Simulated scan of single mutants.
Amino acid sequence: MKLMQTNKGEFGYLKRERKRRIIIAAILLGVPLFIFISMWIYLGTRNTIWTIIALVGSLPGCKAVVDVIMVMLAKPVNPAVYKKIHAHQGDLVMAYEMYMTFYEKKCAIDAIAVCGNTVVGYTSDPKADTGFMAEEAQKLVRKNGYKVDVKILSELRPFLERLDSMNAHKDSLEEGLKFTPDPRYPDFTRDDMVKHVILNLCI
């Protein structure tokens, strides 16, 4: 099965990631299970060193199952919503389909836009604590050296209006900001680096 190469932060990422993680979990669990069953049949008993090897070998598979569960909790962006957001994206640096996790709370973020010190996100999750998620994301981005103000909205129309405003004032929002390129990502702009930090908070 060939999976579409969709990177984290792109529309369609969660669908691809679900398939990828399921395949990995199946392989990592299938190999030790095959060893256990085949040696049980061959030797006629489970009480062998092969059972221990199979048991230890299943640990990576168990971790992979947890990864599958985590990505299944994340909600892909509704295609109709994506089309609406993309129509207002303009020249902004955007990311889509994120599942932001902190120790206390988790939240699906449909999209974020980055422009200078302004980061605005949108979530369709009715249970999302937008204030908490924005505050924690802002803290971590600032700890990485980028002074930004993060806001997460729970209504689509205000988010689209904010995208239009950010596009209209893009030059002024980015004016005067100092930025030293990261040698690990020489082609990244400041907005790209802020996006990169935020994506590292997500599965």
Results as ranks from 00 to 15, higher is better:
residue 72 M to F: 09
residue 109 I to M: 14
residue 86 H to C: 03
residue 168 A to D: 10
residue 46 R to C: 14
residue 183 P to N: 12
residue 131 G to M: 10
residue 146 Y to F: 15
residue 167 N to A: 02
residue 75 K to W: 00
residue 155 E to Q: 09
residue 104 E to I: 07
residue 60 P to W: 08
residue 91 D to M: 15
residue 165 S to K: 10
residue 81 V to M: 11
residue 139 K to C: 05
residue 60 P to K: 04
residue 82 Y to S: 00
residue 104 E to R: 15
residue 41 I to L: 13
residue 177 L to K: 11
residue 107 C to L: 09
residue 181 P to M: 13
residue 43 L to E: 13
residue 104 E to Q: 14
residue 160 L to R: 04
residue 49 I to V: 15
residue 181 P to V: 07
residue 163 L to G: 05
residue 85 I to G: 00
residue 164 D to S: 11
residue 147 K to Q: 12
residue 64 A to F: 02
residue 131 G to Y: 12
residue 127 K to G: 06
residue 147 K to G: 08
residue 118 T to M: 14
residue 131 G to D: 09
residue 62 C to M: 11
residue 80 A to W: 11
residue 144 N to F: 07
residue 180 T to K: 15
residue 125 D to N: 15
residue 172 S to A: 13
residue 54 A to Y: 01
residue 112 I to A: 06
residue 152 I to P: 00
residue 104 E to P: 01
residue 140 L to D: 05
residue 54 A to G: 02
residue 104 E to K: 11
residue 178 K to S: 15
residue 42 Y to Q: 08
residue 177 L to F: 12
residue 106 K to F: 10
residue 127 K to A: 14
residue 174 E to V: 10
residue 75 K to A: 09
residue 49 I to T: 09
residue 176 G to P: 03
residue 165 S to L: 08
residue 169 H to R: 07
residue 119 V to L: 03
residue 132 F to M: 03
residue 77 V to F: 08
residue 147 K to H: 07
residue 119 V to D: 00
residue 127 K to E: 10
residue 114 V to H: 00
residue 113 A to K: 02
residue 102 F to K: 00
residue 59 L to E: 03
residue 181 P to K: 11
residue 138 Q to Y: 06
residue 146 Y to C: 02
residue 156 L to W: 05
residue 110 D to Y: 14
residue 137 A to G: 07
residue 133 M to Q: 05
residue 177 L to Y: 13
residue 180 T to A: 15
residue 79 P to W: 08
residue 51 T to P: 01
residue 61 G to A: 14
residue 181 P to E: 12
residue 121 G to K: 03
residue 54 A to M: 05
residue 70 M to T: 05
residue 173 L to D: 04
residue 162 R to T: 12
residue 49 I to F: 15
residue 153 L to T: 11
residue 177 L to G: 08
residue 41 I to Y: 13
residue 42 Y to W: 11
residue 80 A to H: 14
residue 159 F to H: 00
residue 101 T to V: 15
residue 135 E to S: 15
residue 50 W to C: 01
residue 153 L to D: 04
residue 136 E to A: 11
residue 56 V to M: 14
residue 158 P to S: 12
residue 159 F to I: 01
residue 116 G to R: 01
residue 121 G to S: 10
residue 137 A to F: 09
residue 45 T to D: 03
residue 136 E to S: 04
residue 182 D to E: 13
residue 151 K to C: 13
residue 51 T to F: 02
